[in-house]
Nucleic acid binder design. Structure first.
Lengths: 389, 389
DNA sequence: ACCGGTTGCGAAAGCGTTCCCGGTACTTCT
DNA sequence: AGAAGTACCGGGAACGCTTTCGCAACCGGT
C-alpha cells in the first residue's frame, strides 16, 4: 500500500492524476501531493560527465570559505599571504580551471571580443585577426571569430551569436552585400563598443580603422599611367562599402588629374565572391577595345584577371599591366609578381583592438568615435612594368 | 553627531576602525557595527552598461513566472499555445537575446566547440574550419578558434582557454613542436571529447580524421619517377607528427619499390615555420649534387622551393620537378602550376565535427575512438612534367 | 585598560538560466 | 457526484563565480 511521504498515513491516500508519466498521490491528512521517489536509478553511469573542480572544492579542501578562495585567486587585498599560497597550491593540485561562464555571469563581462569578417580564405583577414589577437590575448581577452561568408544574412546571424555570447566588444568588417548596419545597432543599445575596420560604411557613428584607400588607388593608377598605360580599367567593389567607393574615386581622380578621360565601360563591378572575380576578368578582356592596364580593388581580383589573361594569351605586363591592393603573400608568388598597395594588415588588427579597449575603458557616457587611417605602400613588381616603355 | 542606523541612538556610538577607507561605527546599545551609507553617488552615469533584457523582464511584462517563459522559449510541452505566442511576441519586442553564459552555467554545456589549429595563414586550415562550421552551426553550436602559431606553449595556453570556456568538444591539429598530448589529457579527464585531425600523433587514444598520407606520398613520388626524375628529394616535416612520418615513409617506399636508392642527404627537415621553408629550399638547391625532383610535405614548402629555384635560375620542371601536398588554391596560381595531392579540406572539417557529435551523444561510458581516413587525389599540373621526357 | 585602527575571513545576495516538483483548475470517466 | 486524469503554471534550488558587508581577533598608543 502507498504511504504518505510526510505522515506515513496509508488510508488517506488517493490517486491524483498522472504527472510526467508517473502516478501522483494525494494525502488527505497532510493536504499534500507527491509522487513516489524514483527508485534511485542506482547507476553512477549517469556520471559520465566528470566533475570539474570549482572554488568550492578548493574551499572545502582547505576548510575555508569560497569568498576567500576567490580573493586568493585574484590577488585581491584583504587576504593573508599564507592563505593565498595554500589556495594556489590546492588549485594547482586539483588542476583548477576557472569557469569563464560563471565568471562572465557574475561580472557581466565575458572577457571575449567578437570579430566578424566576411571571409578568411584569403590571407588578409587572417593577418588582421592575428594582429588583433596579439593585443587582445595578453590583455586577458580571447577572440571569437565569425565569418559571414560574404552573406548578409550570415552576418546578421553572427551579430546575434555575439550578442548571445555577451562579448565585451566587437570588431567588424562588412560583407559586400550589407546595405546598412542596423543589425549592429543592438550593440550600441547594449553599450557594447564596436570598431569597424577595413570594410566600413559611412553612415555609422563608430570608431573605425581604415587605410587611405583613396590615396592608395590614386598612387596605383598613377603608377600605371607613368608606365605607359592608355586605357586603364578598374575592377571596383560593391558601392555600399566606403572602401570601394574611395578606391573608385582615387582611380577616377588619378585619371582626370593626368588628363585621361573616364570611360565607364572600363569600370566593372565585382561583388567580392570568388567566382565573380573571374566573370569580371572575362568580361574585361573579351571587350572589343581591351584595356592595357588594370587597377583591381584587391589582390585576389587582380590575380584572377592575370589567370584569365594568361589563358587568353594576353601578355602581362606588356599587353596588360596590373596593380592590385593589399599585398597578400600570394601576390609575390604569381608570375609575374603583382604590383600592389601594401596594407599593414597586422597593424590594422592591433589598432582596432587598441581603439576598442580605449572605448571599453571609457567612463564618460558620451564616447567620441575615432577614425584611424593607416597608410598604404606601393610595392612595385613586374606585373606593371611594361618593357617597351 | 552620528546616529545609529538602527536605533537612532547618538550617545552609545563609538568609532570602530576604518574599513575599506571608510569610518566605521559601533552602537553599544544595538551591539551593531555600521558605516555611513555612501551619499548616494547620484549619477546614473554608472549605468553606462545598459541592461540587456532577460527572461525575467519578459515574465514581468506578461505577469507570469520566468519558468513559464523559459518553457515557452524552448518549445517545451506543458505550455499553453497562447502563452507561448505571447512570450515570443514580447521576446521579439524587447529584442531578447538569451544569455549563453547563464545557459551554459545552468546546463553545464556551452554550445561551443573549440578548434585548435597551428596556423591559419595558409588556406588549408581555414577551409577545414569552414567545413566544420557548416556542420556545427546548423546544429546550434558555434566555434571558438584558437591558433597556436606553431608554438607548443601557445598550444598549451589554448587548451587552457578552451577548458575555461567549458567547450563541449574539441577539434585539434597539433603544432610541429608538440612532443606529446599531455596537455589534452585534461579534456579526457573532464569527459570532453576530442577529435584530432590532420596533424595527429600516434600515442593517443582518440578519434581522428586524417588523409591517407602514406598513399598520397607514394602516389606523388611515383609520379615524379614516372616523369623521369632520378634524384628525388623530400622536404619532410617534424617527425613528432604521424602525418609527416607517413609522408616520409610513402616517399621512401615509392623510391625503393621502383628500384631507386634512398639517399638521406636528399631528405631535409622542415619545422613548419615559414622561414624554415626557405632555408630548406636554399639548402637543397645549393647542394653540389642537386636533386632533379622534389616531393614536399605541403604546398607552401613546395612553392617556397619554386621561388628559390626561380631566383637561382633553375628551370621547373625540366631541372627540378616539384610535387606538393594539399592543393591549396595558391598551387594553381604559381607558375608553373604546382602538381599536388588534393586533400578534401572542407570534408575533413565536416567529418571531424560529425565524429565529435557522435562522441558527444554517446551514452555508453566506454566510447571506442574511430579513425576516418580520407583519400587524396593527385592533381597534375606543369611543375612535374619534364619536357624532354 | 581601553579606544581607535587594522587584518583577514565568512555569510549571503546576486548574475540569468534550467529544471524539478508541487499546486490548482479544469475535464473526463464511472 | 466523486474519483481519476489532464493541462498549465509558479516557486525555488542549482550552476560557479564575484562582491558587499558584517564581524572577530589582533595591534598599538595613551
Amino acid at each position: 500500500m502507498i504511504k504518505c511521504v510526510k505522515c506515513s498515513e496509508v488510508d488517506a491516500i488517493a490517486k491524483a492524476g498522472i504527472i510526467r508519466g508517473k502516478q501522483r498521490y494525494y494525502c488527505g491528512r497532510c493536504d499534500y501531493y507527491f509522487t513516489l521517489p524514483a527508485a534511485e536509478v542506482s547507476l553512477a553511469a549517469a556520471t559520465s560527465k566528470k566533475h570539474q573542480p570549482t572554488i568550492v572544492d578548493i574551499a572545502r579542501e582547505l576548510q575555508i570559505s569560497k569568498s576567500t578562495v576567490s580573493r586568493a585567486l585574484h590577488g585581491h587585498s584583504d587576504i593573508n599571504e599564507e592563505t593565498r599560497k595554500a589556495v594556489l597550491d590546492v588549485a594547482k593540485k586539483l588542476d583548477y580551471q576557472p569557469n569563464l561562464l560563471a565568471y562572465g555571469l557574475a561580472k557581466s563581462k565575458s572577457l571575449t571580443i567578437g570579430i566578424i569578417v566576411p571571409e578568411f580564405i584569403n590571407s588578409f583577414f587572417p593577418y588582421v585577426i592575428i594582429g588583433a589577437q596579439e593585443i587582445a590575448n595578453p590583455a586577458g581577452y580571447h577572440v571569437l571569430i565569425c565569418q559571414s561568408n560574404e552573406s548578409y544574412q550570415t552576418e546578421i546571424d553572427n551579430t546575434n551569436v555575439l550578442m548571445s555570447s555577451r562579448v565585451d566588444g566587437i570588431l567588424a568588417s562588412l560583407t559586400g552585400k550589407t546595405p546598412n548596419v542596423d543589425h549592429f545597432k543592438k550593440f550600441e543599445r547594449a553599450g557594447i563598443p564596436i570598431v569597424y575596420f577595413n570594410r566600413v560604411t559611412t553612415d555609422v557613428c563608430a570608431s573605425k580603422v581604415i587605410v587611405d584607400d583613396y590615396d592608395g588607388a590614386y598612387q596605383g593608377v598613377t603608377h600605371l599611367i607613368q608606365n605607359g598605360c592608355k586605357r586603364i580599367a578598374h575592377i571596383a567593389g560593391p558601392q555600399n562599402l566606403q572602401i570601394c567607393r574611395d578606391r573608385l574615386q582615387g582611380y577616377k581622380d588619378a585619371l582626370l588629374r593626368h588628363g585621361m578621360e573616364l570611360n565607364e565601360s572600363l569600370i566593372i563591378y565585382h561583388d567580392l565572391n570568388p567566382e565573380s572575380a573571374l566573370h569580371c576578368a572575362q568580361h574585361l578582356l573579351d571587350a572589343p577595345d581591351r584595356p592595357d592596364g588594370l587597377f583591381a580593388l584587391n589582390d585576389p581580383a587582380a590575380i584572377a584577371t592575370m589567370q584569365v589573361a594568361k589563358e587568353k594569351g594576353i601578355r602581362i605586363p606588356d599587353e596588360l599591366a596590373v596593380v592590385g591592393f593589399s599585398n597578400e603573400p600570394t601576390s609575390a608568388l604569381v608570375e609575374p609578381g603583382l604590383t600592389t598597395l601594401a596594407q599593414p594588415m597586422a597593424e590594422i588588427g592591433k589598432t582596432a583592438v587598441n581603439l576598442l579597449f580605449k572605448q571599453m575603458n571609457d567612463t564618460t557616457d558620451c564616447f567620441i568615435p575615432e577614425t584611424k587611417v593607416l597608410k598604404t605602400t606601393l610595392i612595385v613588381r613586374k606585373s606593371s612594368l611594361k618593357r617597351q616603355f
